[in-house]
């Protein structure tokens, strides 16, 4: 079992709560203060993405988080239940093509994924028939105290 597990209904208002909880657990897990902002932002991005995906496809399903602290790493897994149907394994877009606000240049750049990739020490995105899992981790200086 993960150190901390969390699930919340797919509403934007709960993303902030998730950020606060993850930051608190990261701090207790020994993640350096200087990295906490990065943890908070990257996890917030992953949760925002999952919430938007659920609101489009399965608004009644909760978004799930697993927080693990072991082997001097702090790992967060954000899981949605929106099946990925891209045979290339690509991550399904969460914003409608006509959503003008997210269009950058000629394409629809997913800024959230760019931010996650830029902030997390290690990122792994897995698209499965059951949904998308974004796994992020950072170094933890001390052994877990949670």
């Amino acid at each position: 079992m993960a150190t901390v597990e969390l699930s919340f209904s797919a509403l934007p208002v709960h993303v902030r709560t998730a950020r606060l909880i993850v930051t608190a657990v990261a701090r207790r897990s020994g993640v350096a203060e200087a990295l906490l902002d990065e943890v908070r932002l990257a996890v917030g991005e992953a949760c925002s993405r999952a919430v938007e995906a659920h609101r489009l496809h399965c608004p009644d399903e909760p978004v799930r988080l697993e927080l693990n602290a072991a082997d001097r790493r702090f790992e967060v897994i954000v899981s949605d239940t929106v099946p990925g149907d891209d045979p290339a394994g690509g991550i399904p877009p969460v914003h409608a093509a006509e959503d003008f606000e997210f269009a950058l240049g000629d394409g629809t750049a997913d800024l959230g994924l760019a931010v996650i990739a830029g902030l997390a020490d290690h990122v792994d995105i897995e698209t499965t028939p059951k949904g998308v899992q974004i796994r992020m981790s950072w170094p933890a200086e001390a052994e877990a105290s949670v």
Partner: peptide
């Protein structure tokens, strides 16, 4: 105090 990609998207829009 905090800005995420949604906020960036709004500014770009």
């Amino acid at each position: 105090e905090f800005l995420d990609s949604t906020g960036l998207g709004v500014l770009v829009g």
